[in-house]
Design a protein around this nucleic acid. Structure first.
Lengths: 261, 261
DNA sequence: AACCAATGGTTTGAATAATGAACCAAATGA
DNA sequence: TCATTTGGTTCATTATTCAAACCATTGGTT
């Protein structure tokens, strides 16, 4: 692991849940040497990527990331595209829609939209990452990424987040294979007991899977008809998003997709 | 210069004007070795900080910066605070208001607001960085930062952006000293011939100067009375912004500031 | 077609920077 | 008072980075 990667990894530990981290804590959670972490933080600080908060000497993300995000947005207004598509998707289905992107070996929630159709809906506010094995999103990505990714994901720990979480690697492999065949993935209560979600993969310009779009419903509300409507809407939304991102769909999916629509 | 700093420096070359950069071009503009740039880019790419665009193999900023910016915003909603204050500032003065932050050894425009009072106003859309020696913003920062920064800034090249740009280090030093005494800096046509701007410094929690708030007017519109109104409004806005950012004003400024208000 | 220049990407021993264990001073709390 | 934890620093060892070359491919020119 290169020095730069280490530094970037450090940035990954900052989250909405834990926005400020002290030197010692960061050395503990990252498992790196304290001196190393310190020097990396110094360089990140010099670049404005982290700064030291006022009260204690804890570190938090710095203003440099804002500028970069601005440029990124100006370059590739993905978020706008995604949010517009998600609004349409949630309107069409009456349920919560969201998009997550692969970030290293995790999936980070990228954007989401609620429907006004129901007073009860799946909320996304407090979720930042999704487990690869327990979410429809994660299964969709595993189904359309290199076998490599699936292998490493399934060889790691597979925590049972709910009693319904599938944790058996063999069963997960069949779920992934099914997702690949059908063009979409499914999860019933894998992360929260009463949430039923469906997901389709998203691809970048090189044809590699970068994430997934999903629709999540309260399990009680899911019917066969709604499921069909969601899958159709998901495929359309994914097609649209990928096109706007300058992405390219693999041929195998194009067939499953036209079948579904 | 450490490896991490180099990698972060590479990110700095991406801008709204030049959102995609090829390997060779980046080696040229950065002055680093090609192999070095390549490896750094590979690591940045693995972290999602850059990605390769579809058409050619040029690099552009990646999606990772978006997530970090989200967290940063959730942690320190500086931008919202700044924008609200700038709206008030531009309303109060009838002129364009903006805030820029130190980013390494440059000043990056961070936020701005227009007034509805006039059809003609100074526009900020296409500006991304401000020169330290030619802008009121830059002079304000130099006046309230370490002598070190001023020394390095004045020892480098001082391009004459307009015929009115002050480029003589000695004259700049007196301007900076005046700004320190008065609590605000001034630039008449330093960047654009007909723009008159006033700026006050902003400070972070550690009491170090991190940027400046400024109001820019068409030179023809500036009067003694307007200037007084702007300086007063600037000091109030700066006080408010710094307070919201959890910053601390140096005592020397507090006096000049209360005098002005 | 032959050529040229430029591109992205890869290799090499020699130079340089990163590393990690131990250490320090200051703050905190028992 | 003493023990613990904090942010920060030091220095010999070690791994990484450097610079200059080299490939393979592309696009344009003659």
């Amino acid at each position: 692991m290169g020095t730069v990667s280490k530094a970037l990894t450090l940035l990954d530990y900052f989250s909405r849940q834990q926005p400020e981290i002290g030197l010692s804590e960061l050395t503990r959670t990252s498992g790196m040497n304290k001196a190393t972490v310190y020097r990396l933080l110094c360089e990140l600080q010099a670049g404005g990527f982290v700064e030291q908060a006022g009260s204690d000497r804890a570190y938090r993300l710095g203003p440099a990331v804002l500028r970069l995000a601005n440029v990124r947005e100006a370059t590739v207004p993905m978020r706008d595209v995604a949010e517009a598509a998600l609004r349409r998707l949630s309107d069409a289905t009456g349920e919560t829609a969201h998009i997550s992107l692969m970030q290293g070996d995790r999936m980070a929630i990228f954007a989401f939209a609620y429907s006004a159709a129901h007073g009860i809906a799946v909320r996304m506010e407090d979720v930042e990452f999704l487990p690869l094995h327990a979410s429809s999103t994660g299964l969709a990505v595993l189904a359309f990424s290199s076998a490599n990714l699936a292998a490493t994901a399934l060889s790691g720990p597979l925590p049972a987040i709910t009693p319904h979480t599938v944790t058996d690697p063999e069963r997960l492999r069949t779920l992934i294979a099914a997702a690949r065949a059908k063009g979409h993935a499914e999860s019933l209560g894998g992360i929260e007991e009463d949430v039923h979600s469906l997901a389709v993969p998203l691809f970048d310009a090189r044809g590699t899977c970068v994430g997934a779009a999903a629709v999540a419903t309260p399990a009680a509300r899911m019917t066969r008809a709604l499921q069909d409507r969601i899958v159709t809407a998901l495929h359309q939304a994914a097609q649209e998003i990928v096109a706007h991102w300058g992405g390219a769909m693999p041929d195998e999916l194009r067939k499953a997709r036209t079948d579904a629509i």
